[in-house]
């Protein structure tokens, strides 16, 4: 981490510590827009970290944005920080001016397709749109087709609101219904847009999961040290120690995998990271909940704010299987005797 990044991490950590308490997360999950938190991040320039200054962003590297996103996930922040970053990145790449306020983004459902179909001066959006995270709270959505994107006002669309298991509001479009119609000139060409969305989506999910896991390990160790049974802290029991050691190994692996895509958007690195971090979620959730006992299974305890999010993020923008297969296709194409070369090039 360079000095600039150190500062970004410290600043965002302070904001989240002050303004993203359990009570704030609960309000967010009840459907409220937590404006105070967003506003504090926005005025500090943290919502547009990693977006070029001449495009209206705060400048800096993609890594800056991802470090803020990790922090947000450590605190289970109920805001579209990752979506805003992806949407802004795509808009800048397509040469579209950034609108004010929080942005969100959505492409086709896994296995589906989104198309912009021109009808005179209007454009129909047709296909299967993935649930739009925080759609209810964002005045501008970036909708992504295979090689085009469009900035859309959700008022023009036929969305139904719902909550996912992370407690994040999502706007969904029942299959077979029309998504909506927008002005034709809002559609802009961006080659490889849907693939780019998938990659940015995966990069941000990896960092979100990494942040949540870091916090989960801290919470689990702290709880084991403080919880007493049979007259002593449960951290004294080897059975508990061994489980926490496994947890620490998973979290350290995920941090290393996530670090490798702070400064690389090579598809292979993304594939490795999303596959490895997604795979770890099962063990991380399993062990942390086991250590926390029934208390950790309650809505009141903050552990579930993290684990519920992990269960959502691991599925978004390609599950482990998707990325494992992507990686494997590269390997198989080169053959058994080149496997080692593939591995050693992933520095």
């Amino acid at each position: 981490m360079n000095e600039q990044q150190q500062l970004i991490v410290e600043t965002s950590h302070r904001i989240f510590s002050d303004l993203c308490t359990k009570e704030v997360v609960d309000r967010g999950e009840a459907g409220e827009w937590v404006q105070t938190l967003w506003h504090a991040l926005e005025t500090s320039g943290l919502t547009l970290a990693g977006i070029a200054e001449d495009a209206g962003g705060s400048g800096g590297d993609v890594a800056d944005a991802l470090l803020v996103i990790r922090q947000a996930a450590e605190f289970a922040a109920p805001i579209p920080l990752a979506e805003n970053f992806i949407a802004a990145t795509l808009l800048v790449e397509a040469g579209i001016e950034l609108p004010a306020g929080p942005l969100t983004v959505a492409g086709a459902l896994e296995g589906g397709k989104i198309e912009f179909s021109q009808q005179g001066s209007a454009t129909d959006i047709v296909g299967d749109l993935a649930p739009v995270s925080f759609g209810l709270h964002c005045n501008h959505w970036v909708i992504v087709a295979e090689n085009e994107i469009a900035v859309v006002s959700p008022k023009a669309l036929n969305a139904a609101p719902m909550l996912n298991i992370a407690g994040e509001s999502e706007s969904i479009f029942p299959s077979g219904t029309s998504i909506g119609s927008i002005e034709a000139l809002n559609v802009v060409k961006l080659n490889g847009a849907s693939e780019r969305l998938r990659q940015l989506g995966a990069i941000t999910r990896v960092n979100l999961m990494c942040g949540a896991m870091t916090s989960i390990l801290d919470m689990s160790v702290a709880y084991a040290l403080e919880r007493k049974q049979f007259g002593r802290a449960i951290s004294q029991f080897q059975a508990v120690q061994q489980q926490l050691a496994i947890l620490a190994g998973e979290v350290a692996s995920c941090q290393r995998a996530a670090d490798s895509i702070l400064n690389s958007d090579a598809v292979m690195d993304i594939a490795i990271a999303k596959a490895r971090v997604g795979e770890a979620v099962q063990k991380v959730a399993d062990i942390s909940h086991q250590v926390h006992g029934a208390m950790g299974y309650t809505r009141e305890h903050p552990l579930n704010l993290r684990t519920r999010r992990l269960w959502v993020w691991r599925d978004q923008y390609g599950k482990e299987t998707y990325w494992q297969q992507q990686l494997a296709r590269t390997i198989v194409a080169r053959g058994a005797d080149a496997l080692w070369d593939v591995i050693t090039r992933a520095n």
Binding site: W323, Q325, L327, A333, N347
Partner: peptide, 30 residues
């Protein structure tokens, strides 16, 4: 195993190759 499956692996084989390799690369980096 990669030699055995050759150029026509099925999805399960691909998934496993990817899983084992993503783990290996992460371990190596650490």
């Amino acid at each position: 195993f990669v030699r055995e499956v050759g150029s026509a692996p099925n999805d399960a084989q691909l998934t496993l190759i990817g899983r084992l390799t993503s783990n290996l690369i992460t371990l190596r980096r650490m």
